[in-house]
Nucleic acid binder design. Structure first.
Lengths: 207, 207
DNA sequence: GGACTGACAAAAGTCAACATCTGTCAGTCG
DNA sequence: CGACTGACAGATGTTGACTTTTGTCAGTCC
């Protein structure tokens, strides 16, 4: 019987499964090793610490959030509509993770609370995706922005309530979607979009 | 020797002092009673539970946040400048509490995490103060807003990162003030303010 | 007679003995 | 030789007996 070689990749898969099963509070390195049929010392040959292993699992998991978003950010269509879809997708992905993968989501929430580097990189990725959409929008003449990078951060910060896992418990509140729509309106104006998308708007009489 | 009557007011003062000293984790009803020289049974004559007592202490404490803000909200000057001062004051008050009154601030953070009614009332108060400033601004022709109440909530939500105690640990981050400025710019635009306040801006060439 | 006490039950919290886990490394095995 | 093991020390968690706290209420005292 040919044993498959022990690789970082296989450890990550096993670790993710163990985290999913037992959650961040109960999952141990011994559990991961047991799932792989090796001693836990072997795991430490590939990852310097349990923390590093957890970060690496989270990194893969976060990539599965930021990749679909990157695709939307890279599209060609009108930027305002694209920004809206991007934000909707971010909310949807986060909420889906919180719902379908509660233990991994709890792991991620811990990382956020611990201000781990892997989280900093993730939010930088997201903010720069927004910046990219905003820059496209400026080129299209749809947005009036001085500094798309700064504005990208501003959009990310202003919508924190709707994607930061620290606020996850509020996502199922009755008014949450309405609250998002309110902030979205603010954003549209703040980005220099003059046309109100839905029903036609009267031209302002003054000025 | 005339003993002063035991009133809810005196209990609240003692409870606040006990909470300030020992923090939410260590303060007990017996401590509060001891500070007043009575049995803890007497305290339960005035408050139905420890939770109710804690909420009442927080309510007083929150009033000391919302009252100075209400004064700013009620002023007569130009609304955009007033909104800015209101937000600055909110940030300053919250940060001051976190710094100078860490135990009471921790008590409040717990209440927020528990989604207590007293917190809901507090944020409703704040959101309506914003709405009032916005309504003034619309009357002055400084803001272009359809629904000041909805916009008040949106401003409150979009700035959550800068006043919600759940984010308190980020308030001392290096970029936090810059992040606030970014969101503030977004807000100004989102509220329909066309003039950029600081250095003169060229008139837009298109449209 | 109503504010207050103090004794009490149930709930929650503490703490130290015990158990498990993390991280290391000398040594085995293929 | 080098991936892997297993035994180990120190750190961290768990357990369960014990203590404190919460909340109640019959009874006292002015």
């Amino acid at each position: 019987m040919v044993e498959e070689a022990l690789t970082a990749e296989r450890i990550l898969e096993a670790a993710e499964e163990v985290l999913r099963r037992f959650g961040p509070a109960k999952a141990t390195v011994v559990d991961v090793a047991r799932a792989l049929g090796v001693s836990h010392g072997s795991v430490y040959r590939h990852f310097p610490s349990k923390t590093a292993l957890r970060d690496a699992v989270a990194e893969r998991w976060l990539a599965r959030v930021s990749h679909p978003l990157a695709e939307v950010a890279a599209e060609k269509g009108p930027a305002p509509e694209r920004l809206r879809r991007w934000l909707d997708l971010l909310r949807e992905l986060k909420r889906k993770k919180a719902r379908d993968d509660p233990e991994l989501f709890a792991t991620y929430s811990n990382l956020v609370a611990d201000a781990r580097d892997v989280v900093r990189v993730h939010v930088e990725t997201l903010a720069s995706q927004i910046a990219r959409i905003l820059a496209d929008g400026v080129e299209q003449g749809a947005f009036t922005i001085e500094d798309p990078v700064a504005a990208g951060w501003a959009v990310f910060n202003a919508t924190a309530k709707f994607h930061n896992p620290i606020h996850a418990s509020e996502w199922s509140d009755p008014g949450n979607d309405a609250a998002f729509e309110g902030v979205w309106s603010l954003l549209l104006g703040g980005l220099g979009v003059r046309e109100v998308p839905a029903k036609a708007r009267k031209k302002p009489s003054k000025k």
